[in-house]
Design a protein around this nucleic acid. Structure first.
Length: 461
RNA sequence: GCCGGGGUAGCCUAGCUGGCUAGGGCGCCGGCCUGCUAAGCCGGUGGGGGAAACCCCGCGCGGGUUCAAAUCCCGCCCCCGGCGCCA
């Protein structure tokens, strides 16, 4: 939620932000109108309450003095007053609710460095990294996606297999049987891929712990109150699974539970920034994604993700936004996955983010850059809804800024590895930095050649 | 899940046989005093409305009773202890 005072004092800025996002500007004037009505009403109520409080004190005095007749008179007057107050209070609630539900519908104010634009095509690639393998048939499309940036690439003559086929050929995943028991967009990961999933997570966790982030395994379910603080309302319909007959929702990312951790608390200024790296499963309905990535494990209802989350002092959140983005890039660099960083345009930002970078990995089989990582600065938007403040030196309570970024999401990273580390014979090399988490396994091979057991029994670890 | 105890301001606590300024302590901020520090003393330290004077709201959350609720009643959440169950 944005600050009502911002709407009051700087409606132009809010309208500018709405316009930039391609959202309704008129909502700002509606908020102001209900706010005016609310203030008018609360003022009247306060006047009446003052009168009531005076009479109440008088009633206490009369009772003490035993003037029962006068007391009866006061009682009648107060009953009358109460009726008037009750009427006004109903109005006051109505105006306030109208104002606040409109206010809650206003997404975060976009940062000035966010590109204009309403669709994906208007996102701005700001840097590329890595050695790109490009199948000849994708070359033209690849060059177009570079948007003028110069990169290091090689043309390959054989066409890499889609990860969907690799899952089957190398016996490392079964989505057909998962669909039988749970529905589409579920999976059984098997063999090297099951191990790889956890290896990716351990790698990301370890790298961020080295940077001083506090590792956390958070709750996988949240009560509605907490969930409302960290997401916008559309998430409840489109994204979140609810536990039947319980006030509990499955998290769609560790961002949710880590963000809610300090709900309604006051932090010490000297403790900021608080940096966490969380590991959790993520559950997502993927409603409205029909027809997209229907096969394989790229877009699924359940996956593991290592997530960076920071509670920051407002003065340093923009620096920290760059930091978490660089951290995520560093992970892909160590994994040897080529990528580009994209500054997401205003119209494509989520409601809570003021600015967002996506990191998109190059997928040689698909011939496209695909989103692996998303890094957002939510400024005080989440914090205001969650009531997370800090006490400044001057003794004032102010809202913290919250930031979140994927470190690595296991299944999508696995897809990127399968596509980028695929050899012409269809086997897949395991990136060197991950091997220590896989008992030294160096490659994913067809069923006939598999021998996971001896890898773990050998002394190579 | 059952029984008992509890939830008061940034933190700790008093008030809980309904009424009169929610009192005290700690911490923090400002001031006085002081060669400096400490101590001491004074003031401030939740949210909202108002140009201001000032006023209203706020005792875990939500209802109710009453002229009047931190206080009485009902429901819910959380914490502590005991019992039960359990990887």
């Amino acid at each position: 939620m944005i600050d009502i005072n911002l709407v009051r004092n700087n409606p132009k800025l809010v309208k500018w932000s709405q316009k930039k996002r391609g959202e309704d500007e008129g909502i700002v004037d509606k908020v102001l109108e209900y706010d005016r009505l609310w203030r008018e009403t609360i003022r009247k109520i306060n006047d009446l309450r003052r009168e009531r409080n005076k009479k109440s004190a008088e009633a206490a005095r009369l009772k003490k003095e035993g003037r029962l007749e006068d007391l009866e008179k006061i009682k009648r007057e107060m009953q009358e007053l109460n009726a008037r107050i009750k009427d006004l209070e109903a109005k006051e609630r109505e105006y306030k609710e109208a104002r606040d539900s409109l206010l809650r519908a206003i997404p975060n104010i976009v940062h000035e460095s966010v590109p204009d634009g309403l669709s994906e095509e208007e996102n701005v690639p700001i840097r590329f990294w890595g050695h790109f393998k490009v199948w000849r048939g994708h070359l033209e499309a690849f060059k177009e996606q570079l948007q003028g940036h110069a990169v290091d690439y090689e043309v390959i003559e054989w066409k890499p297999k889609s990860h969907v086929d690799v899952l089957e050929d190398l016996d490392i995943g079964d989505t057909r049987r998962a669909a039988k028991v749970a529905g589409s967009r579920f999976y059984y990961l098997k063999n090297e891929l099951a191990l790889l999933d956890l290896a990716i997570a351990m790698f990301a966790l370890e790298e961020l712990v080295k940077k001083g982030y506090t590792p956390v395994i958070p709750p996988y379910m949240l009560r509605r109150e907490a969930m409302e603080g960290v997401t916008d309302l559309s998430a409840f319909e489109e994204m979140l699974y609810k536990i039947e007959d319980e006030d509990l929702y499955l998290i769609a990312t560790a961002e949710h539970s880590i963000g809610a951790m300090f709900m309604n608390e006051i932090l010490e200024e000297k403790d900021l920034p608080l940096k966490f790296v969380g590991f959790s499963p993520c559950f997502r309905k993927e409603a409205g994604a029909h027809g997209k990535d229907t096969k394989g494990i790229f877009r699924v209802h359940q996956f593991h993700k290592v997530e960076q989350f920071i509670f920051s002092h407002p003065d340093e959140s923009w620096d920290l936004h760059e930091e978490i983005t660089r951290n995520a890039e560093e992970l892909l660099q160590k994994l040897g996955i080529p990528y580009r960083v994209v500054n997401i345009c205003a119209g494509e930002l989520g409601a809570v983010a003021s600015k967002k970078y996506d990191i998109e990995a190059w997928m040689p089989a698909q011939g496209k850059f695909r989103e692996l990582i998303s890094a957002s600065n939510c400024t005080d938007y989440q914090a205001r809804r969650l009531g997370i403040r800090y006490k400044s030196r001057e003794g004032e309570f102010k809202y913290v800024h919250t930031l979140n970024s994927t470190a690595l999401a296991t299944t999508r990273t696995a897809v990127a590895i399968i596509e980028n580390y695929q050899r012409e014979d269809g086997t897949v090399e395991i990136p060197k930095v991950l091997r220590k988490y896989l008992g030294g396994i160096k490659e994913i091979v067809p069923p006939k050649r598999k021998d996971l057991r001896s890898s773990f029994l050998s002394s190579e670890r």
